[in-house]
Structure formats: structure tokens, C-alpha cells
Amino acid sequence: MLTHFFVTGTDSRVGKTIVSRALLQAMAAQGKIVLGYKPIATGSQALADGVRNKDAVTLQQSSSISYPLAKITPFALSDEDIFTSDLPFDIFERMTEGLEFMCQEADTVVIEGCDGWRTLITPQQTYSEWIVQTKMPVVLVVGIQEGCVSQALLAAQSIIADGVTLLGWVANRINPCLAHYPETIAVIEQNIDAPLLGEIPYLPRAESREMAHFLDLSRLAAMA
């Protein structure tokens, strides 16, 4: 059984949180207990009742268990650039500890990353190093817009070259006016050595919608 996997994107703002929500909803519909985990999140706000991150809130609302936001996102950063923030030296160990605890609580944990595959968390250290160390399988989110074909192929090649399993990719239509949408999906599908798990159309307020029906988890199970 697929106990946990990592969701990365071709870039920032391509819909990783939306796709993570759809994956959580789809697995919950199969009767699984699921939890979302975003160990590092940028753009967080300090409020009277604590630090709040909108991505973490979406994952919390999409999970089977009402998990505390501080556990879903232990490193909620206000800065948009991770590597300019003061993260602890043992950041990977602490991220792994949080994941292991969640795996005891849920059948499957969906871990959402930050930005793209090669995101820096220090000037010399990438987020992807944690994924490689833990041998975590990956789902790639492709934001369908101008220039996305090159981004998708480069990201997929980089993930596979790092020696981790690319479970599949999800197309998220973030530009509703993009011409040649079917052709774009087809050419990416022909050139990525992993299955297309689903297509999410452009949806206003997608973070509050039901999206499980846009995904085909049988393809995910075949790769696990």
C-alpha cells in the first residue's frame, strides 16, 4: 500500500495545494484515512491565535482527521524565499519525525512541497535532497500555461535522474484561455515516462471544491 508520497510542481503557483486536496479527497472516497502534510510553507501570517498558512488550512480541511495546523506545517514561514529564512540545522530530521508520526495516524500521507523540485532551503541545500534521502515517491503537478511543456519535461527528467519513483503527473489548468490545450496535454503525456493521473480544469475557489472525480487513482496504484 502507498503509505505516503510527495507532491512537487513545475514551479511555484501551479496548483500543488489544489492537486494535493484532490488526491486526499480521492483516497478518502476509497475509505482510506488520509492526512495532508506541508512541512515547510511560505507566505504565512502571524495572527492573534497563532501562525496561519492558507495552504496548510486547505490540507487540514481536506484530511480525514482534524489535525493541528502546527503539525501539518511545523515550519510556517512568512518569507516567500525559503533559503533566506532561519531554518534549524536538523530540518530534514524534524521533517521526517513529523512524517513518521503522521504515518502512524493515517493510511496515506500526502506531502506537499514548496515551489519546484530544485527549491533551495539554504543557499547550498535543496528540498529534493530530503525526498531522495527518504526514497519517497513523487507526483508532479504541471500548471498548464505557456511554456509548461519544457518545464514539465525538465522536472520529470530531474526527478527520475535523482533516483526516486515518479508515480505520475497531474495537469492543472491555471490559464483558462490557453490555446491548444488538448495538444499540450498530449505532447506532455507522450514525453513523460509516468502516467497522467488526471486533469483539473480551471476552477474559481478550487480550494473549497470537491475534485476527486478529476483523478484516476488506479493509475497511481499501478505505479506504487
Rank of each mutant, 00 (worst) to 15 (best):
9 G>C: 07
190 Q>I: 01
207 E>Y: 01
104 Q>T: 14
201 P>Y: 10
202 Y>R: 04
173 R>L: 15
40 I>H: 03
182 P>W: 05
27 M>Q: 13
26 A>Y: 03
28 A>Q: 13
176 P>W: 08
51 V>D: 09
177 C>S: 15
86 D>K: 13
151 Q>E: 11
45 Q>N: 12
152 A>T: 10
114 C>M: 06
51 V>K: 12
100 E>I: 09
224 A>L: 10
106 A>F: 07
53 N>S: 08
86 D>L: 11
61 Q>N: 15
100 E>N: 14
66 S>H: 11
66 S>L: 08
132 V>L: 05
135 K>Q: 13
57 V>E: 15
109 V>T: 06
158 S>T: 13
124 Q>S: 12
213 H>I: 12
39 P>A: 09
217 L>W: 01
19 V>N: 09
183 E>P: 04
167 L>H: 00
165 T>H: 10
154 L>M: 12
115 D>A: 13
209 R>W: 00
107 D>P: 03
124 Q>T: 14
102 M>Q: 11
62 S>D: 06
145 Q>P: 01
77 L>N: 05
137 P>F: 06
224 A>N: 14
22 A>C: 02
84 T>R: 13
222 A>C: 05
188 I>A: 07
118 R>D: 06
36 G>W: 02
99 L>H: 03
166 L>R: 10
6 F>R: 03
160 I>T: 13
62 S>Y: 02
151 Q>S: 10
24 L>H: 00
202 Y>S: 14
144 I>W: 06
12 S>M: 11
116 G>H: 11
181 Y>I: 12
204 P>R: 11
132 V>N: 03
127 Y>G: 00
136 M>V: 10
171 A>L: 06
96 T>V: 08
81 D>W: 03
182 P>N: 03
177 C>A: 14
